[in-house]
Amino acid sequence: MIPLSVLDLVPVREGGTLEQAFAATVALAQAAERLGYRRFWVAEHHAMDGIAGGATSVVLAHIGTLTRSIRIGSGGIMLPNHTPFQIAEQFGTLAAMFPGRVDLGLGRAPGAGPELQRALRKDLHRAAETFPQDVAELRALLTGEPELAIRATPGHGADVAMWMLGSSLFGAQLAAMMGLPYAFAAHFAPDHLDTALALYRRDFRPSPDLAEPYVMVAMSVICDETDAGAELLASSQAQSFVRLRTGNPGKLPPPVAGYRDSLPAPAQAMLAHLGQASAIGAPATVREAIGRFVERTGAEEIIVSGSTFDPEARIRSLELTVDALAS
């Protein structure tokens, strides 16, 4: 069975609280650990009422404390929002707390308007232009090669597995050049998937940490006992996607029966396009969809995304997905 991991946005549900969101994420991580998922990643987003993972390293420390063995990491840290030194300290601290368990997935997209740039005191678009240099500096701060004028403590010599994230060709090129494992965000941006993976594998240069290319691809996966049940669960995430793409993001809404059929044609087309990187249905449906996707991508690992309004439904989805792929 292909290794599976979990990507979580720490969703805040309509009518719910931040405390409930963090408790649900911890319960999900504990379930993933129990079920044999390889890693549990949290994504960095800011100034969004429906996503509570902005202080990513703090959330990961909380998850790490309440789990025992599953790898924890960022999917990802948007490095233009930070300095390499700050991230070396944060993830060096995590690595000291949870030895052998910490992943550092890095992304370039600033994903911010002028208000957030002012709040962060950063020119994020200019910072995105220096992303390759910042990644190299961050790796040097962690590994000590080359030795820099300053050491991050914690950070220097930390056992942190760096990953490059991407949804375009840029991340694939940088991951290949630096010899990093590569995670592609197909669950929300599938357009360049095949070209990016081909480029990464073709141009990959071995590094001290990675001898051969390693690809993990993100899919939206929601599994229930029936296809209809899974589609209903998935309508919460579908609503969130549509609201985000139409400039009206908010908290995760409850499911709506027949939601897709109620949408105008452009919104239906958008969801159908995203559906090429999804597996939503009963166990047999999910098994077939993941199998086709692995055959298409040649991925060494799949990381599953997909928020549900009922936190227990996502835990059940993880259980059914593992069982489906193991059968």
Rank of each mutant, 00 (worst) to 15 (best):
E129S: 10
V322H: 07
S307I: 09
V6Q: 05
V322A: 07
D209S: 14
H82T: 04
S317L: 04
G16P: 03
L18W: 12
S74Y: 08
G76C: 14
Q117I: 05
V58C: 02
A186Y: 08
A267W: 06
I150R: 13
Q276V: 14
V160S: 08
A61W: 11
Y214E: 14
A161V: 14
R201S: 12
R316H: 11
G247L: 02
G229M: 08
E225W: 13
T56H: 08
T130W: 03
G15K: 05
T308N: 02
D209E: 15
M216I: 14
G229C: 10
R314A: 01
T285L: 01
S235C: 06
G75P: 01
L199T: 15
I77S: 00
A47I: 02
L180F: 12
E33A: 05
T297W: 07
V160Y: 07
L142F: 10
A198W: 10
G250C: 07
M78A: 00
A196I: 06
D191M: 11
G54T: 07
V42F: 08
T297K: 09
Q133I: 03
R121S: 13
D134A: 12
A47Y: 04
V12W: 09
T83N: 01
G36H: 02
Q268H: 05
M178E: 15
G229D: 09
Y259C: 07
A183Y: 05
P254A: 14
G92F: 09
P11H: 06
E14S: 09
R245W: 14
I70K: 03
A96W: 15
S317V: 02
D49T: 12
L210P: 11
A88E: 05
G64L: 04
P132T: 07
H45Q: 00
A198I: 13
R39L: 06
L116N: 01
A326P: 06
Q86A: 15
A175K: 02
A43Q: 00
A196H: 04
F170V: 13
V160I: 13
G281K: 07
L325I: 07
E300Q: 15
A43F: 05
D194L: 08
M1W: 06
A128P: 06
K122T: 10
S207W: 01
E295V: 12
E115D: 13
L28E: 11
D261A: 10
A149I: 13
G250E: 04
D323R: 10
D310G: 03
L120K: 04
P181A: 10
V6P: 00
H156V: 04
A313Q: 05
R316T: 05
A158F: 09
P249K: 05
G113M: 07
E147L: 14
C223A: 15
Y200T: 11
A21D: 07
F40R: 08
Y259N: 00
R202S: 14
N81P: 01
S207N: 12
A24V: 02
P80W: 00
V215H: 00
A324G: 01
D8W: 00
R151W: 10
G291M: 02
P11W: 07
C223G: 11
S235Y: 08
S327Y: 04
R118P: 04
T297G: 13
S278C: 12
E33M: 11
R39T: 03
E137Q: 13
S235Q: 03
